[in-house]
Design a protein around this nucleic acid. Structure first.
Lengths: 157, 157
DNA sequence: CCGGGTTAGTTACAATTGTAACTATAATCG
DNA sequence: CGATTATAGTTACAATTGTAACTAACCCGG
């Protein structure tokens, strides 16, 4: 490890910290809005969002696409089923696997929330030039891939 | 609200979601490393990081600079005091206010962790051109400012 | 000075989230 | 087949985090 032993680190310039703060600010704003307006948590919103686009997924498939673990999905789905927004049946070919779909009420929530969410995103990005936006999002993609590699195992340094 | 009622939203293109996933990936990697190597939580690490740079802060001042609330700071400091990494005294001018400083052991932790943290950051950014890095971080700054404005009150749409 | 309001920080309690064990089906292989 | 192992999802419990009430110290107007 060829790093100067006397290196200095200011939190406000440290990327992981800055990502965390920004993500938190944004998520808190959205979570508050989802909760107030639709009685939805962020995990629940994520489940609705993927089921609206691809109905019939299993819980594991939902977990994959929402970057949540299976327990979080189970809880979110339980809540959504309770409030009549998701219907749960069992796959006839494999009775362990669930088949999740939005009900009419679930689709309605999705349709009402999407304009709100997109508008929030639009306003967040409003002051960036289109070229800045696109560079930012492609960098985000690359960082995500990179972080995935570095993360779990990359604990040596 | 002039938004098409039929708008569609894919989670994987939705910026708040992507920020959350990336921040999570990065934080999990770091939290694991901090915990394993130094027995430190992320809140504790943040407190150490600001106290290393500006000793003698009060808990409220630490909260401000770490984007944590006062309860989180209180808990982190309690833990650090228990492990002999932070010293807490009371300000003689105002005996409610605490004066927080790192002990020698606290400074040692900081000095050992900084190279690790910077190395992680360096590797995360390693594949980006310098110009991409700098644009990314300036955009991050602008988004943070913007999100701060949109957030708390901005719940009208 | 002294009562009402304010601020710093902690403590207590509630809600959320993570981790591990469990149940039920299904797949594999001797 | 039938015993073992694996997979899907849930449930139970632990740890973390958020929210609200509290204590102690200060401040200020009367």
């Amino acid at each position: 490890m060829s790093v100067p032993a006397s290196a200095i680190l200011d939190l406000e310039h440290f990327l992981p910290y800055r990502l965390s703060v920004l993500s938190n600010t944004v998520s808190t704003a959205l979570a508050g809005a989802y909760a107030r307006r639709f009685g939805l948590s962020i995990p629940q919103w994520r489940v609705i969002a993927v089921l609206a686009r691809t109905p019939g997924l299993s819980a594991a498939a939902v977990a994959e696409r929402t970057a949540m673990d299976k327990v979080a999905v189970s809880r979110a789905v339980a809540g959504l089923a309770r409030s009549g927004r998701v219907r749960r049946t069992l796959a006839q070919s494999d009775r362990r696997r669930s088949v999740l779909t939005l009900t009419a009420r679930g689709r309605e929530v999705y349709m009402r929330i999407v304009p709100y969410a997109l508008e929030y995103e639009r306003r967040l990005l409003a002051e960036l030039a289109p070229s800045e936006q696109s560079l930012f999002t492609t960098v985000l993609t690359r960082l995500q891939k990179r972080a995935g590699l570095l993360g779990p195992a990359g604990a040596r340094v």
